[in-house]
Write a protein that binds this DNA or RNA. Structure first.
Length: 417
RNA sequence: GCGGGUGUAGCUCAGUUGGUUAGAGCGCCAGAUUGUGAUUCUGGAAGUCGCCGGUUCAAUCCCGGUCACUCGCCCCA
């Protein structure tokens, strides 16, 4: 038994969970498709270099969270810890610079070597949306609209807040970073241990700190808004105006920063208070510097990723895309076995969900039909066989009536809800 | 990677101040009911008490380690 368990932080997806995943993905696909996005599936692993270069050597994702290994050919590869780098790589590999704008969506497993918690695992699943090759703020608005539509159609929009910030263009961002470093350097003695490390590696991260002492300092720290140049202000105003025009609520959070190095301008997180410490359900932003950093031509991009497992915990039972309740075909005695197989097959061909047990007497089979929440049981014995009819029992009402076998499919299609 | 909690049947959980055969509910299987389900009744199967080691005449219980889960930190979807 000891080893008959999944690797730490991985889970089997079956039953109710599987239905939840499918429901979310189908709604996601429907929304993304309506915005003209095309599906893209990139490999679940890439050369390690692809992620190292884009995520930044100092990020936690690169330093302690990647599933990296050497394959038999001596290549250094890594299970993807996020989507954007792989999609950007695919964009360049396939020469899509010729075909911008590119609007993509994707769904699949993501891997991070982390300590598991609720809503956080080592293999989890993300849905991803990217618009590549559009420097205009309209793309930011559109991508946020997709997110908003998705959460609303999942029925959880009211539990989720959109937190929005602008990291500014590179000039604004650098000015602000310098000001921040200067400020915190003057208060080193009061900073937490974690934040002292952040000060060296990723100073803007300090703004995120949950440490109480840090929070006092942060309250008086320079605000990013004070360092926006005109271009940044205009860009951000276009985004917020667009959201207001679409009736999408947001909250400016100027402490919201991104862990990844390639973001600029718009950064956002959709958060909830219903998932403990893992409140972020969907997050993303603009990454105009990414492609260049990867060695390609300068290409704008904006997108987001949403965590499937976290969304699956939030959606309510009644939006689930469950399969139709089955109809159960029940031979009464061995004599009608062959006919029942044929009847079941014909009903399936007509699009009806049909189950037929493999053994057992009528009582057993009815019990099983009930357990499967079947809507009808179709009983065919010697008597019915000879007369070309079937006994159709409505398992909700307990009533039954004879229906001619040639008319069975129509009868069921007319009477199932 | 750091700190706290937990681990007894498929599931939810009792229990043993260390002592012979470890319990319940739900679920599962069978029968009452071999041409009719849901209720009911009767019976049954199912546990290396997470794993390894230590203390002890004796450990599911105490101690150590380990694995997994869980809550928080770091970080993130």
């Amino acid at each position: 038994m000891a080893r008959l368990q999944p690797v730490r932080g991985t889970h089997d997806i079956l039953g109710d969970k599987s239905i939840r995943f499918r429901t979310i993905f189908e709604i996601f696909r429907s929304v993304a498709t309506r915005y003209g996005h095309q599906e893209i599936d990139t490999p679940i692993f890439e050369f390690t270099e692809t992620f190292k270069r884009t995520l930044g050597e100092t990020s936690d994702v690169v330093n302690k969270e990647m599933y990296t290994f050497e394959d038999r050919g001596g290549e250094h590869v890594t299970l993807r810890p996020e989507y954007t780098a792989g999609i950007a790589r695919a964009f360049m590999s396939n020469g899509l610079q010729q075909s911008t704008p590119c609007k993509f969506y994707s769904f699949g497993p993501i891997f991070r070597y982390e300590r598991p918690q609720k809503g956080r695992m080592r293999q989890f699943h993300q849905m991803d949306v990217e618009i590549i090759g559009v420097p205009e703020a309209q793309a930011d608005i559109e991508v946020l609209a997709i997110a908003s539509d998705l959460l609303n159609e999942l029925g959880i929009g009211q539990h989720i807040t959109l937190e929005l910030n602008s990291l500014g263009d590179p000039e604004s961002r650098n000015d602000y970073r310098d000001a921040l470093v200067k400020y915190f350097n003057g208060h080193k003695g009061a900073l937490s241990e974690d934040s002292l490390v952040r000060l060296e590696k990723n100073p803007m991260r300090i703004l995120d700190s949950k440490d109480e002492g840090d929070r006092l300092l942060i309250a008086d720290a320079p605000r990013i808004g004070e360092y926006y140049n005109q271009e940044t202000k205009d860009f951000f105003a276009t985004v917020t105006d667009g959201l207001e025009g679409l009736g999408i609520d947001y909250q400016i959070n100027d402490r919201l920063v991104r862990g990844l190095d390639y973001y600029c301008h718009t950064a956002f997180e959709f958060t909830t208070d219903q998932l403990g410490a893992q409140g972020t359900v969907l997050a993303g932003g603009r990454y105009d510097g990414l492609m260049e950093m990867m060695g390609g031509p300068k290409t704008a991009g904006v997108g987001w990723a949403a965590g499937m497992e976290r969304l699956a915990e939030l959606i309510s039972e009644d939006i689930l895309h469950k399969p139709n309740r089955p109809v159960v075909v029940t031979p009464v005695g061995a004599i009608s076995q062959t006919l029942c197989l044929k009847v079941a097959h014909d009903l399936r061909t007509s699009g009806i969900v049909v189950d037929m047990g493999y053994k057992g007497n009528v009582g057993k089979r009815m019990k099983r039909a009930n357990k499967q929440k079947a809507i009808f049981a179709i009983l065919i014995g010697e008597d019915e066989l000879l007369r070309g009819v079937a006994m159709v029992k409505n398992l909700d009402q307990g009533s039954q009536e004879e229906v001619s076998i040639s008319n069975l499919a129509n009868y069921i299609l007319d009477n199932e809800k």
